[in-house]
Design a protein around this nucleic acid. Structure first.
Lengths: 321, 321
DNA sequence: TTGAAAGCGTTACCAC
DNA sequence: GTGGTAACGCTTTCAA
């Protein structure tokens, strides 16, 4: 380090951190700043957090699957909001790691808070992180995890919206697309369950339609469509809806006359389809709210874990249903 | 620390790191492992890198704008490949930070390597990082930055492919969509330049068409379309192409008879449009290659910066042109 | 107002 | 084979 600026290391620390407890003479301040500038001095985060016993890092695992514009926006907002509160958001690329192994890897960084999709961590992982000094662990997912704060995202509400809407429109034989791509079960299973719930106790039925995200798979599904005698389909999301709708139209199946189609996520592309795609709009919590929750939890680590329902689902009715 | 396992800290270190230089008795090993297990011991990355003088962190700024499936896949591959080489990939959420300020923030983590979009850093930033111990700084962008390795992504090749194709198909008055969304200039400007280059010295012309990603903006552009008397358009990418194509078709403009349309990125949605969308397929470097480049640079920091052209562009001809 | 020194968790290096 | 010790860069307490 550059204490060769003529003063002691302590003085440097005081000046650069603007410590108010001690007063440093103006000339000294200037000398320190000049020296730092000249040497390109940058404080060493590791040394600092070693000494302090904690970091200002909020850690999130980097998403393994491509994320849509919805989640991207949420992530950006969250980063901005946490940045304003003087935290550093870090997405940890945890490729092959799973479960407690991942939690241990994250714990090595001694983050002050961890924000993690629910399925990626269990109670033991939470405990590991807390013992490693994490003052807040927040999960984002369908169910709470012991010891952690929880933002509950009940994706069955999405399926429920779609199912109830289709039923109200007079549809009774409802197909539900379930993506075959791995990693999407977390969303697709609750969405399917939500449709089932909406139809429970009625004369309508839900039929599972596994579908890979390829033209060919969609064409095959469409080829056998009439045999299924369905009058509606909830297509998991807008992208699968577009895929299926195109295949159906190519097959001569009319939308919405022969089959009503509903997607989810309210993407731009749904508005560009003909007929325009009905969809379920999903609302994530605002990044700012979440940042405040994290900050509160960090300041008061003893408090009871907060559990909050955060996912809003509302149907946007357009021409396809 | 678990020296309360009855042994010295050094012994713990040996056992947990499987140091081969010294032999530890089996009973001692067991005791250490048991204690670590019981205490939920996790090594402290900060302390380790403080001692070692460097970390195994490869830092990338987290993307500020939503990224498409193409870049997501690349990122995933890269993380996996670097993970296999025992690096930790960290995406740093650098919200408001820009230029040298961002570089300093990154430098605080003392990453062993930094991988950064070219526009986000200059030669001074590179120097800051290197002085802070980064053994490799790799930029990904249109031009190289002094002192850093460079993966050159020449997006003008994308525009050139599209322009040359449209010209070869007999089109002479070619519109080029330029998104109005901020942050996309890095891509849109070279793509436009590429079209111009393809048409240079011919009788064909390129017309700039600024376009916001909204239905209304597209409708307005389409409303005045005939006045522009264009016979082709390169729409920046597949999403803008879909937006514009829909607006044109709603306006009664026929594709490809009245106007040929070409997109870019070869997304699934292009194949689902009718007519199917011609597009420019873009190839990014494989994550594994890049990981190897990083690893090589880290092992031999003295070497000349590598400069490599990495972006492939090839036209996929479908029905829209 | 400034300087000296301790200590955070690790590991490399020497004595034992 | 094992254990003590020093040092990494920083902040903070205490003394000058």
């Amino acid at each position: 380090m550059a204490r060769l600026a003529g003063v002691s290391r302590a003085t440097v620390s005081y000046v650069l951190n603007n410590t108010s407890a001690v007063r440093i003479s103006e000339p000294t301040r200037r000398r320190v700043h000049e020296a730092a500038q000249e040497l390109g001095y940058v404080p060493h985060a590791a040394a600092r957090s070693l000494r302090a016993g904690h970091s200002r890092i909020v850690l999130m695992p980097a998403p393994a699957i491509p994320v849509g514009p919805l989640y991207s926006r949420f992530l950006g907002e969250l980063q901005a909001a946490l940045g304003r509160l003087d935290y550093t958001v870090v997405q940890y690329g945890s490729v092959g790691l799973r479960g407690d192994e991942a939690a241990r890897a994250w714990a090595e960084l001694r983050p002050v808070a961890v924000l993690v999709p629910g399925g990626d961590i269990g109670p033991r992982g939470v405990a590991v992180l807390q013992r490693a000094g994490a003052r807040a662990v927040v999960t984002l997912g369908p169910e709470r995890v012991d010891g952690a704060h929880a933002l509950l995202t009940d994706h069955s509400a999405v399926g429920h919206s779609a199912g109830a809407h289709l039923y109200a429109r007079g549809r009774r034989r409802i197909g539900v697309v379930v993506p075959e791509e791995p990693g999407l079960e977390v969303f697709s299973e609750p969405r399917l369950a939500g449709v089932r719930r909406a139809l429970h106790g009625t004369d309508a039925t839900a039929t599972v339609l596994p579908l890979a995200y390829t033209e060919q798979a969609a064409a095959e599904l469409a080829a056998g469509w009439r045999g299924l005698s369905l009058d509606a389909v909830f297509a998991y999301n807008d992208e699968y809806a577009m895929l299926l709708m195109r295949a159906l139209q190519d097959e001569g199946v009319r939308v919405p006359e022969d089959v009503a189609v509903v997607g989810a996520d309210d993407l731009m592309l749904g508005r560009l389809l003909r007929p325009r795609l009905s969809t379920v709009r999903i609302e994530l919590p605002s990044g700012r709210d979440l940042a405040e929750l994290v900050d509160r939890a960090v300041r008061d680590p003893g408090a009871e874990p907060e559990v909050r329902e955060v996912l809003g689902a509302s149907l946007v009715h357009r021409a396809s249903s």
